[in-house]
Structures are given as structure tokens and as C-alpha cells.
């Protein structure tokens, strides 16, 4: 008896310990966000006081609105939404098309192409920064360039420069191929007997069946692109009209050297995070469902 009670007590203690660990970890995860949220509420006077108080005595809630009137937040928000949605759409389309071809057709060179897709994923991002920048810069007949790519600025300082290098994702092709592999071939053969073209088979039969996969991949892409900084910063450094929220906040950092304005910076940071949090909280369920669907089919 005593022995059983002992193990039970130990089991309870270890369960307690697990929740303590999870709670402490969660607090450490949240504390920096909390610090930003509180910081955004301080008055300029509190910022400049010596020593500055931690808790705002007169919370400046309107700072969260001031970022829209005193910073080009509206413009940044539009650019973030426009580029992120366009890239997500393009990557889903190209991934689905290429993944479908690699999963459901037999043709010469298919296995080579699939292995190339796997291999391409291994190439690090930084290797492409410099050459892609100058390929866009000297793109023939773009942005005032002549046939040899001289004379204009090419695709630089345009949405194309932000979007085009992200039109295809190797990982996405791989993932969509896995999803399409799970569809039975009989389905396509039946449609062919009915005289469907391959395009109708793809768009009207295959694509709807892999919707969970598209949602999963779509969320991955959206979160990644919303948060993309290095590339967008590189091609929009001299084009404030094209900057996204994180890039805009980073490049405007000189305006926040004055401590009195730093509450505004922290409020802007909060605004830059909010949309992905909302999307994540709403779509987390679909995301997990998509993951399990992929695991079963793949």
C-alpha cells in the first residue's frame, strides 16, 4: 500500500513540476511582449525622467492610433498586405502546378526534376542576395533598361522586385507533391474517359481535394512573407513608398533616437505583429488539421 501511495505522490509531483516548467517558460515567452505593450503607453515625460518609471501613470492608449497618423503606417500596411497576399497566391499556384506534374504524370526527366527540387532546398538564401539584386537591376527592357539591361533601374524600386524572386518555393513544390501523391489515379482516369482536359482535371478535381494542404502551405508562406525583412529592405531602401511594416520601422529607426518618441516605436512594433497573431489564432486549427492530413496521406 505504502509503495503505491509513494509512486502516486511521485507521479503527482512530477506532473506538478511539468506545469511549473511550462508556466515559467510561458512567462519568459510573454514578458518581452508585455514590456513592449507597456512601453508603448508611456508619456514622453516619463521616457525622459531620471530614473524613468516602469509603469505608465497616465497610459497613452492613443499611441496605438497615432502610429497611423504620425507614421506612414497606412502605406506600410498596404504594402505588407499586397506583397504578402500576392506572393502567397503565386507560391501556392506554382507549387500546386509543379507538385501535381511531379506526382501524377510519367515523363522523361521527372525523377531528375524532383531530385533537383529537393537539392535546391539545400542552397542557402544568402547565396542569391547579391546576384538576384543585380539580375533585377539589369533586367532587359524593364524599368527603362534597353535590350542589354543598361540605362534604367530595371525592376528595382517596384513591387516586382519584392515579389518576383519569391514566386516559387522548392519546399512548397515538395509538400504539394506529397499531397497529390495521396490522390487515387482512378479519379483522373475516370475524368479523362469523360473527355476532361488535363487542366480541368487539375483545377476542378485535384485541387479541391488537396485544400487542407493548400491551407497549411498558405499559412506557412503568409507568416514567412509577412515577416520577411532582409530582401525587401535591400530592394526598397531608397523607395519609402514600397516598404512593408517591419522594413519601414527598421529604416525609420533614426526618428526614434529621441527617447520621447520611443513609445510610438513600440506601438508600431505591436501593430506589425498583430495581424499574424490574429491569423495564427484563427487558423491554428486548420493548420494542425492540414498537418495531420498531410501525415496520413504522405
Amino acid at each position: 500500500m505504502a509503495m503505491v501511495r509513494d509512486t502516486r505522490a511521485m507521479a503527482t509531483a512530477s506532473t506538478m513540476a511539468k506545469y511549473v516548467v511550462l508556466t515559467i517558460g510561458a512567462l519568459l515567452m510573454l514578458a518581452p511582449f508585455f514590456d513592449m505593450f507597456i512601453g508603448a503607453l508611456r508619456t514622453p515625460a516619463e521616457r525622459l525622467a531620471m530614473p524613468p518609471p516602469y509603469w505608465p501613470s497616465d497610459p497613452q492608449w492613443q499611441n496605438y492610433l497615432r502610429v497611423f497618423t504620425e507614421l506612414p503606417m497606412g502605406r506600410w500596411l498596404f504594402n505588407s498586405l499586397y506583397t504578402t497576399f500576392t506572393i502567397t497566391f503565386l507560391q501556392l499556384l506554382t507549387s500546386a502546378m509543379a507538385g501535381f506534374a511531379l506526382a501524377k504524370y510519367r515523363f522523361r526527366g521527372r525523377d531528375f526534376l524532383f531530385r533537383s527540387v529537393l537539392g535546391a532546398q539545400m542552397f542557402p538564401f544568402f547565396l542569391f542576395l547579391i546576384p538576384v539584386f543585380f539580375i533585377l537591376r539589369y533586367f532587359p527592357l524593364a524599368g527603362g533598361n534597353d535590350l542589354l539591361g543598361e540605362g534604367g533601374a530595371g525592376f528595382l524600386n517596384s513591387y516586382t522586385a519584392i515579389i518576383l524572386p519569391f514566386a516559387v518555393t522548392w519546399y512548397g513544390i515538395f509538400l504539394m507533391r506529397q499531397f497529390f501523391m495521396g490522390l487515387p489515379d482512378e479519379l483522373m482516369d475516370a475524368a479523362r474517359l469523360d473527355g476532361c482536359s488535363e487542366f480541368r482535371i487539375f483545377f476542378q478535381i485535384a485541387l479541391p481535394l488537396v485544400l487542407p494542404g493548400l491551407v497549411t502551405l498558405g499559412i506557412f508562406i503568409f507568416v514567412y512573407q509577412w515577416n520577411e525583412v532582409i530582401w525587401t529592405m535591400t530592394v526598397t531602401r531608397t523607395a519609402p513608398d514600397l516598404q512593408t511594416i517591419p522594413v519601414g520601422i527598421y529604416l525609420l529607426r533614426g526618428a526614434f533616437v529621441d527617447q520621447g518618441t520611443q513609445s510610438l516605436q513600440q506601438a508600431a512594433l505591436a501593430v506589425s505583429i498583430a495581424p499574424v497573431i490574429v491569423i495564427f489564432l484563427f487558423l491554428q486549427r486548420y493548420y494542425i488539421r492540414g498537418l495531420t492530413a498531410g501525415a496520413v496521406k504522405g
Binding site: 515567452m29 518581452p32 513592449m36 507568416v223 509577412w226 515577416n227 525583412v229 511594416i245 517591419p246 522594413v247 520601422i249 527598421y250 512594433l269 506589425s272 505583429i273 499574424v276 497573431i277 495564427f280
Partner: peptide, 8 residues
Amino acid sequence: PMITNVVA
């Protein structure tokens, strides 16, 4: 933190 942009 994972879904937060690196500037933030």
C-alpha cells in the same frame, strides 16, 4: 516569438 517579425 516565432511568428513575430525579426525587426520587432
